[in-house]
Each structure stands twice: as structure tokens, then as C-alpha cells.
Design a protein around this nucleic acid. Structure first.
Length: 997
RNA sequence: GCGGGUGUGGUGAAAUUGGUAGACACGCUAGACUUAGGAUCUAGUGCCGCGAGGCAUGGGGGUUCGAGUCCCUCCACCCGCACCA
């Protein structure tokens, strides 16, 4: 009986489905384990072989954990709202709901082909109304809450109102407007609109007027993490800063907790660092500088108060509100000119020319708080309006940017670091002694910092201050394909639809606020989204609905909770369910979500925790980042030009002029498709081809040209005119081009191609690139599964290397894994005799081979070292095949071991072994210690580190006994050359080395 | 520039965490069986050398009886952030 993987795999897939083998219950008698993959965005391109890498790893782990007695939750769903579907709709007119549905069906089909143990009954889709009902509901909870800085947690807004009524906001700094102060009496005197405006400044989900990234190309605003290198992450369109009224999440209030609780997470250090950097906490002081004319105050933020005696000038951002006020009449023109220049530069230009020093003097001076010296105030774009106070005190001797600025504008530099500062380069190290600095001269930086802050505080000129790079997260998008906001506007006031004071009928208060169907996806008027065009939806009895939709990260910020209780219509998930499953034990996905999704999810989880809806405050306990599988592109090399044709012999008036003309070859010229093999191409390119070879090649080409029945052609090879083309990897076997398939490729575009081969083959060039359709290097898992089977595919992806490193896909190597599975199969089945498993007693050797494998596999799975597990299986099967072992005592546990990796095959073997139930319900075999520990050991006898020979001793031999035996050995005696050993080194009961002086 | 990471055969990679480097697989070479092989099996395969032997984990230095592993230094590549005061 042969290993007919196709039939076997199909049979068991149907069996799993029919018997609901992977159904997960919230069975609280077993310990739980929650394994989650980052759910995919269902794009139109379908899955390529890179996508399932993480899914396979998590599936192996899930099956293993199940067999170890855990109740495992391992669900899958789709992040179905998003820009690409809407962009596609704009181009084709197809409704995103339709294309999304189609794409999801395709994804599920592809995923099912690989044999994952998902419980599809728990599938979630962020675009389902039954799902986004709860996304909207969570938004409302955020809207109805505020962050209590004293208690360090989010609390219901009604509690805030109670405080205002009692004592105003004297103890609660307003995060939206730090200068806002009122007492209880004033609060009572505010009208509805004023009160609501104040509350808006406190809400966790709030509407604010702030600078956001506006992307004209996409017609929407974007969050910070959706803008990369000055262009939109999706589509690469330019972005600009724009002041707009937008919804925000007050994530900045969580900055500290988001940093602190990273410590308790099992994430890679790189991932944690990325989050820390993004939050960007810096500790320093805010210092006030009085203007010389005492007509304004300039606030600056600094992390180096100790350098205050080195301040030579101030720099203020060109957009800073104070610039106009402080600029003197003489400097007015220069400043206006500079501001215009700054405005004219796009974000991309600004980022590209970071090193350029620009700026202008405002004419204003401020006074040094200690020396009362006059300090000039400059403006420059290197100071960002959006960070700190938008102004800095410049210390050229201690900061390289300030130093460059001082040198450029010839501002004298005060040295406060003595010998450490050499006049050419700022001394930026954060250790050393401060000099030339009044009362802190001779002090260490740390001490000096404390002294300065203390002194400033006494003078009322400064306070300790912590700054963050993190900004509140923009939460609205002027798009159609997203969650609508449960918000309506009445008299210009935003109300949540569940608020009692809102005059709106009961049914309109219900969630979800469903996304209406639309005919087209064009933006509405005045920067509004497409929903603004749907008049009957926008208009309600109580007022106009919010027309923007929520961003892509809304649905994905909490989806892991929904899997716990996916059908619940009364809650996002029951408290019983969330208390049982709690946080995700193991989360697998790429690093690309380091600062987006992973940060937002953490914030939502903390908010839900603060408000008492769930009992844990971190979503993902352990995070494993799988590497990317890159494509391995193949190239063919086309010879162009250099073909000289007799004018009369070739009548191709419609042909474009070829590069030959540029080479000085006149006449009508064209080229047939000539392709040279990569070895020849490289030699031509490197110029290592001899004249004779080139001549031979030319002659060969010319002889082929006769096929076209066109006499009078001559061809000369020219390096500049060989161009590489990417060729579909699926018509290349390794590096050998399949010429027949190539000729049919692209509807016969290359049907007349001629090839210059090496060793009778056309060898393609190669390059590792991102896997994408446009590079013709996409390998579809369906093809691999059809050719080798899902089990081979799964094992091969794991065999490729460690899960967390990126590597190119190489179809060639899959043969080895496939051979292994066939070999394994032959332990159970003979081609002629069929089932050959016997009930014979296993030998010691066979048991050792098995138990060693059980131990290694279990260890490796726990360590996520799946590539070495596959190797261990290969070693085991080779050993058993060598021993001609077909015994149940060995093969039954082996079938169990392989189940996480090759579930279809394991299921088949399990049933052949006589079991009715699915193999996933069996227990993972335990190994017996006596078979994995050796009974005797080899002792390498090394003398002074040089290995000489090996001797074998029983495990329980005394150290003393071994020493005597070794030293008595005649060969050892010879090596010792009569010298006395100084020391004999044993490590872990194993002799390693004899040291001779 | 700052932060994180990696460097081992022709290739993907192992290495019990300081103890015989290169497991396992691809590829390659020979052979067997075959009408055939892109099926299967056997043997070989880090480099130099006929050989004994020597040299090898990016380069250089150090600690150690012993270093891929620890320390110092230089180099290369990858990822993230980037005028964040």
C-alpha cells in the first residue's frame, strides 16, 4: 500500500468536520490554554506559502497542548474592515461586503486545506454587525469614562460629574486643557453645552480639534503608526499636517502603565523596546524664561537641567504661537520669510533633509534665570511644535544639533565641560563633571541636575516634568468600510445614542448602528466621509449622525475576547467566559504590529479592566513573532539590440526603434527574443568572456536567425543591452527554466523565444525579495498541498528553520521531508503486504530510539524549536527502518508524537491501529527515564585539551575507578610521556581532560 | 546618529548552554536496481594534503586545561526609530 496522501488527507478532513472533532467548549474542569494567531485581513490575492508559517506553529502547539490535557482555545477569524476593500470598490464598483465575503471564503478554503484544528463555530469577522455592535459598545464605554490620574485608572464619567458638582476640578488636572479651572459653583452655572465641552476634555474617547495626518490620496486622516516615512502606509500617498475636528482615544493617560507592565510580558526584547520607544518617556524639567522686555514667558522642556549654565540661545518652533508676539519689527521680514519657507516644505522633504541647518533670529531676548544674562531667541524647524513645549534652551557644548546650529549662525559657544568639550563636537555623554557653572561647578551630572531643579523650584521658574512622544490616537476615518460611530449631534453637541437626555426613539438607541448600503464610495462634502451622502441614514429625530467611521484597529483591539463567547448577544463576552479563558497565553504574529495593534489592544484591555468588565489587564502574555517567508524570484536575460538588419530584408515598419540605433547601427532593426542562461549573462556582464567566445556566440545567434528566413542579419553582443526579466517561479524547476512552459507563459508572448543554454539547460538567475504577485514569485500553498500533501507542507515549513527568522521559500527542499513521511509510512505499510504492524515485544534498542524521540519532541515543542523536532523524527525513522522495526509497542506512541505535525497521517495510522476516536483526544506519550539515560558513557581522554582516545565506562562507575583505569591505560601512558597528571577534569560525571604541567 | 539583533560548509541549519563543531535535510559525486528516471536504495561529501597530519564557527586580541558559546575591539549585514530637546 502506498502513501496516498491526497485521499488520506481528504478523508480525515471530512471526518473532522462531520464529527466536530475540534469543537471547543468552555469546559472549566480542565486547565485552559489560549493560543491565538493574529487574524488576517482577507485580501483579494489569497494566501501564499508565507502566510501559514505562524498558523502551522500555533496549530502544532495547540494540538500538543490538547494531547497534554489542556482545554485549548485556538480560533481563527478575519479582520474584515479596511481600506483595500474600499479602494477596490472605488475602482470596480463592487461592494466591499461582497468582495470581503468572497475573499474570506477563499481564505477559509485555503486554511482548511492545511488541516488546522480551528473551531470555525467561533469564527469572528470584524465587519459583522453582530461583532461591531460590541466594538461600538466598547467605544461607548470609553466615551462614558475618564482617566483618574490620582487613582491611575479609568472611571465612569458620572463619577466625574459628581466630583465637579461637589468641588469643581481643583484636584483633577484637565488633560484636554491644563489651564481649565473651575469650582462647584461655576460648574453649576455652566449651560449644557459648556458642561459637555468640559466633559469632552476628560473622556477616554473624545472629540478634539488637533493636528492630524491628512492623506489626500486616501481622502482620510491617519494615525501616527499608519504614516511611514512621510507617506501613508497603505498606498504610499503623501500626507500633511492638518487641524481637524476628530475623535481620539486618550491613550496617553496609559503611557506609564503601558511601559511598566511590559516587564511582566514574555515578549521579545526587541518588541518591548519598540513599544517603549514609541511611548518615548523622558524625564526632565520644564523651565520658564522671562523675556528681557518682560512681555512674554518662554516655557521649555529639557532632560538636562544640569546644562543650564551652558545655554547660549533659545530655539522656538516656527509654528509656535508666541513667535508672532516676540518677533521684533526689524526681524519681522526675516521671520515671515522663514515661516513661509517652512510651510512650503512637504513632510517628506523635511524628513529627507534632516541634516540641513536652517533658522532665523526673532530679535527677542530672554533672561537666564540664574545669571540674568540676555539670551537670544531663534526659530528653527529642528524644534518640533508637537513635542514638549515647542521650544528649547540650546546648549551647544552639550547637544550636537544645538552645536551645529551655533556653528552655522556663528553664535559663541559656552563650554561647561572643560577638557571634555573640544570646540568641534558637542560632548553628549551623560556622565562627567559640570564646570564653569556657578553653584554646580565640579558636580556630577546627576547631582547637578537635582540641585538645579531644586533651585528653579524655589525661584518659581521651573518644575520637574515628564514628557512622552506618544500622542492620543486618532480614531476617526473619513471612509465607508468601517464601524459607524454610535454618536449623533444635537445643537452642535455630540451625544452617545444611549444617553437618556437624547430625544431619540428607543429603537434608535439600540446597538449596532448598522452600516448602511451605499451606491458609491465618493467622499462627502467638506472633508466628510462617504456616509455623509446617505441622507436618510445621517438624519435622525435627534440630529445628524457622525459620518466618519472607526479605524482598522478598532475591531482588532478586542477580538481575542469575542472568541471566548462569540454568539453572545447580551454582552461582548460573558464574565464567566472571560474569567475562564482570561488573557491569551500564546500570541503568534509578525512584528509589523509592534506599535499599532499591539499597543491599542493593550490599552483597550486596561480600560476594560479598569471599568470592571474583565479581570485581567494585559491581552497577550507570551508573544512569538514568526519571520517572513520571502519569495525567491527567478530571472531570464534577454538580449536586446546589436542586431543589424539589411533595410530591405526586414520589413517591420510598425516596430519601434530599438536601442541599436543608439549604438550607431542604422537601418530597420528589431530583435527576436533571445535569452542567455545566467552563467553566460554573468560572464558577459563581468567582461570575463573571451573575444573568441563572444564571436562563437554571435555566430550561433546568427545561425539561429536564419530560422526567421531573414538573410543579412548580424548580431553583436552588448552588455548594456541584456535586460533581466522576472519569470514566474512556477515554470522554473529549481533554477532550470522549463522552456516549453515559458513559451506558453503570458499568452505566448515568448512563443518565438530562442535560448542560449549552458550544459543543455537554461539556468535562471535569482534574488530574494518580498513575495508578491508583481514579482512572479508567489508560491500558492494549494499547489504544494496538491503535489506533496498538507502534512509534508506543514512539516517542511517547520523544517525550514527557526520560527522567528525570515527566510526565502525554496520548493526544492521539500522532497526530503516528503521522503521522510513516505519512509515513516513504510514502517506501518508494505507496498505488497499492506498493514505490517506486529504485536512483538520491542527490543531495548528500539525502545531507546522511541523514548529519546518522545523526550526530544516534547522538549522542542515547549521551546518552539520545531525545525529540530522534524530532524529528530527523521533520525528516529531512519533508526527504526534500519532495525526493520514494525512493532506496535514502538509505532503506536510514534503515531501520537507525530500528530501535532502531520495530523492527517497520524489520524490514519491511529485508526489503522484500531482506535475509533480521533487521535487528538489521545494523550501525548510519556517517555521512560531508563530508556533515555545511557547505561554507559564514552569518556574522551584529552590531554592538555588535545583529544587522544575514547574509553567506555558504565554509568555508575566511581570517579576514582575511572581515573585509575584511564591512567593505567597503555595508550594514555604513552601520551603522558612519564609526566604526572596535575589535574583530572570531570564535568557532569564525565571525564573531559587530563592536565599535565 | 540611537536602539535591538545576526554572522558556523555550495545551501537551509544543529550544537545538551563552556566540553569530540557541522546533527538533520537540500545540493553534489560515485555506484546498485531499472526500458527509462525527476522513483528507490547504498556509499562519499567543511577546507588543504597521496599520507601522517594540519587548518577551520566574520577579523584581531583576551580569560580558561578547554571557547561557536564568556570578555574587549574592529568589520559586515538585517530590523526598528529617527531633529523627541
Amino acid at each position: 500500500m502506498e502513501y496516498t496522501f491526497g485521499a488520506i488527507e481528504q478523508k480525515w478532513r471530512e471526518y473532522w468536520k462531520k464529527n466536530q472533532v475540534y469543537k471547543v467548549t468552555n469546559d472549566t474542569s480542565k486547565p485552559k490554554y489560549y493560543i491565538l494567531d493574529m487574524f488576517p485581513y482577507p485580501s483579494g490575492a489569497g494566501l501564499h506559502v508565507g502566510h501559514p508559517l505562524g498558523y502551522i506553529a500555533s496549530d502544532i502547539y495547540a494540538r500538543y497542548k490538547k494531547m497534554k490535557g489542556f482545554n485549548v482555545l485556538h480560533p481563527m477569524g478575519f479582520d474584515a474592515f479596511g481600506l483595500p476593500a474600499e479602494q477596490y470598490a472605488l475602482e470596480t464598483g463592487q461592494h466591499p461586503a461582497v468582495t470581503t465575503e468572497k475573499n474570506i471564503a477563499r481564505y477559509k478554503e485555503q486554511l482548511d486545506n492545511i488541516g488546522f484544528c480551528y473551531d470555525w463555530e467561533r469564527e469572528v469577522r470584524t465587519s459583522d454587525a453582530a461583532y461591531y455592535k460590541w466594538t461600538q459598545w466598547i467605544f461607548l464605554q470609553l466615551f462614558h469614562s475618564w482617566y483618574d490620574r490620582n487613582a491611575q485608572k479609568a472611571r465612569p464619567i458620572i463619577e466625574l460629574i459628581a466630583i465637579f458638582e461637589r468641588e469643581g476640578n481643583s484636584n483633577l488636572v484637565c488633560p484636554g486643557d491644563e489651564n481649565l479651572k473651575f469650582d462647584a459653583v461655576q460648574w453649576q452655572s455652566f449651560d449644557e453645552k459648556q458642561q459637555r465641552d468640559v466633559l469632552m476634555h476628560y473622556r477616554m474617547a473624545y472629540q478634539g480639534y488637533a493636528e492630524v495626518w491628512w492623506c489626500e490620496g486616501l481622502g482620510t486622516v491617519l494615525a501616527n503608526d499608519e504614516v511611514v516615512n512621510g507617506v501613508s502606509e497603505r498606498g504610499g500617498f503623501p500626507v500633511e499636517r492638518k487641524k481637524m475636528r476628530q475623535w481620539f482615544l486618550r491613550i496617553t493617560e496609559y503611557a506609564d502603565r503601558l511601559i511598566e507592565s511590559l516587564d511582566k510580558l514574555e515578549w521579545s526584547e526587541a518588541m518591548k523596546e519598540m513599544q517603549r520607544n514609541w511611548i518615548g518617556k523622558s524625564i526632565g524639567a520644564q523651565v520658564t524664561f522671562q523675556s528681557a522686555g518682560s512681555d512674554f514667558q518662554l516655557e521649555v522642556f529639557t532632560t538636562r537641567p544640569d546644562t543650564i549654565f551652558g545655554v547660549d540661545f533659545m530655539v522656538i518652533a516656527p509654528e509656535h504661537a508666541l513667535v508672532e508676539a516676540m518677533t521684533t519689527a526689524e526681524q519681522k521680514d526675516a521671520i515671515t520669510k522663514y515661516q513661509d519657507y517652512v510651510k512650503s516644505r512637504s513632510e517628506r522633504e523635511r524628513m529627507a533633509e534632516v541634516k540641513q541647518v536652517t533658522g532665523a533670529f526673532t530679535g527677542a531676548y530672554v533672561l537666564h534665570p540664574f545669571t540674568q544674562k540676555q539670551i537670544p531667541v531663534w526659530t528653527s524647524e529642528y524644534v518640533l511644535a508637537g513635542y514638549g513645549t515647542g521650544a528649547i534652551m540650546a546648549v551647544p557644548s552639550g547637544d550636537s544639533r544645538d552645536h551645529a546650529f551655533a556653528k552655522h549662525f556663528n553664535i559663541p559657544v559656552t563650554n561647561i565641560f572643560g577638557d571634555k568639550y573640544n570646540g568641534d563636537e558637542a560632548y553628549t555623554a551623560k556622565e562627567g563633571i559640570i564646570e564653569n557653572s556657578d553653584f554646580i561647578s565640579g558636580k556630577e551630572i546627576k547631582e547637578a541636575t537635582a540641585l538645579v531643579v531644586e533651585a528653579l523650584k524655589k525661584m518659581n521658574a521651573g518644575v520637574p516634568k515628564i514628557n512622552y512622544k506618544l500622542r492620543d490616537a486618532g480614531f476617526s476615518r473619513q471612509r465607508y468600510w468601517g464601524e459607524p460611530f454610535p454618536i449623533v449631534y444635537q445643537d452642535g453637541i455630540a451625544y452617545a445614542i444611549d444617553e437618556p437626555q437624547l430625544k431619540i426613539p428607543g429603537e434608535k438607541r439600540q446597538l449596532p448602528v448598522e452600516l448602511p448600503m451605499v451606491e458609491h464610495y465618493k467622499p462627502g462634502a467638506e472633508g466628510e466621509g462617504p456616509l455623509a451622502n446617505v441622507e436618510e441614514w445621517v438624519t435622525t429625530e435627534a440630529g445628524r449622525r457622525e459620518t466618519s467611521t472607526m479605524p482598522g484597529y478598532a475591531g482588532s483591539s478586542w477580538y481575542f475576547l469575542r472568541y471566548m463567547d462569540p454568539d453572545n448577544d447580551a454582552e461582548f463576552a460573558s464574565r464567566n467566559a472571560t474569567d475562564y479563558w482570561r488573557e491569551v497565553d500564546l500570541y503568534i504574529g509578525g512584528t509589523e504590529h509592534a506599535v499599532g495593534h499591539l499597543l491599542y489592544s493593550r490599552m483597550w484591555t486596561k480600560a476594560l479592566y479598569d471599568l470592571g468588565f474583565i479581570g485581567f489587564d494585559e491581552p497577550f502574555k507570551k508573544l512569538v513573532n514568526q519571520g517572513m517567508i520571502q519569495g525567491s524570484s527567478r530571472f531570464v536575460y534577454e538580449l536586446i539590440g546589436g542586431l543589424h538588419v539589411d533595410t530591405n530584408a526586414w520589413d517591420e515598419s510598425s516596430e519601434p526603434v530599438s536601442p541599436s540605433k543608439k549604438m550607431g547601427i542604422t537601418g530597420n532593426v528589431r530583435h527576436p527574443n533571445f535569452f542567455v542562461s545566467s552563467g553566460i549573462y554573468e560572464r558577459i556582464e563581468k567582461g570575463t568572456m573571451s573575444e573568441a567566445e563572444i564571436g562563437a556566440l554571435n555566430e550561433f545567434i546568427n545561425s539561429q536567425l536564419i530560422k526567421f528566413n531573414k538573410p543579412g542579419l548580424t548580431f553583436r553582443i552588448s552588455v548594456e543591452h541584456i535586460i533581466p526579466h522576472r519569470v514566474d517561479v512556477n515554470i522554473v524547476d529549481g533554477y532550470d527554466l522549463n522552456i516549453e512552459k515559458f513559451k506558453k507563459w503570458k499568452n505566448g508572448e515568448y512563443a518565438n523565444a530562442e535560448f542560449i543554454l549552458e550544459d543543455g539547460k537554461y539556468i535562471c538567475g535569482s534574488a530574494v525579495e518580498k513575495m508578491s504577485k508583481s514579482k512572479y514569485n508567489v508560491v500558492n500553498p494549494d499547489d504544494i498541498v496538491a503535489q506533496y500533501g498538507a502534512d509534508t507542507f506543514r512539516m517542511y515549513e517547520m523544517f525550514l528553520g527557526p520560527i522567528d527568522v525570515s527566510k526565502p521559500w525554496d520548493t526544492k527542499g521539500i522532497e526530503g521531508v516528503h521522503r521522510f513521511l513516505k519512509k515513516l509510512w513504510r514502517l506501518y505499510f508494505d507496498e505488497q503486504k499492506g498493514w505490517i504492524v506486529t504485536e512483538e515485544k520491542a527490543t531495548e534498542t528500539e525502545l531507546k530510539a522511541l523514548h529519546k524521540t518522545i523526550r526530544k519532541i516534547a522538549d522542542d515543542i515547549e521551546k518552539f524549536s520545531f525545525n529540530t523536532s522534524v530532524s529528530q523524527f527523521m533520525i528516529c525513522v531512519n533508526e527504526l527502518a534500519g532495525l526493520n522495526c514494525h512493532k506496535r509497542e514502538i509505532l503506536e506512541p510514534l503515531a501520537l508524537c507525530i500528530n501535532p505535525f502531520a495530523p492527517h497521517l497520524a489520524e490514519e495510522l491511529w485508526h489503522q491501529l484500531g482506535y475509533e476516536d480521533s487521535v487528538v483526544n489521545a494523550a501525548f506519550p510519556a517517555y521512560e527515564e531508563k530508556y533515555v539515560t545511557e547505561s554507559s558513557k564514552n569518556y574522551p581522554v584529552a590531554i592538555n585539551g588535545k583529544p587522544r582516545l575514547e574509553m567506555n565506562f558504565p554509568l555508575d562507575a566511581e570517579q576514582q575507578f575511572i581515573e585509575e583505569q584511564v591512567l593505567g591505560n597503555e595508550h594514555v601512558q604513552k601520551y603522558l610521556e612519564g609526566k604526572q597528571p596535575k589535574k583530572i577534569i570531570f564535568v557532569k560525571g564525565k571525564m573531559i581532560n587530563i592536565v599535565v604541567s
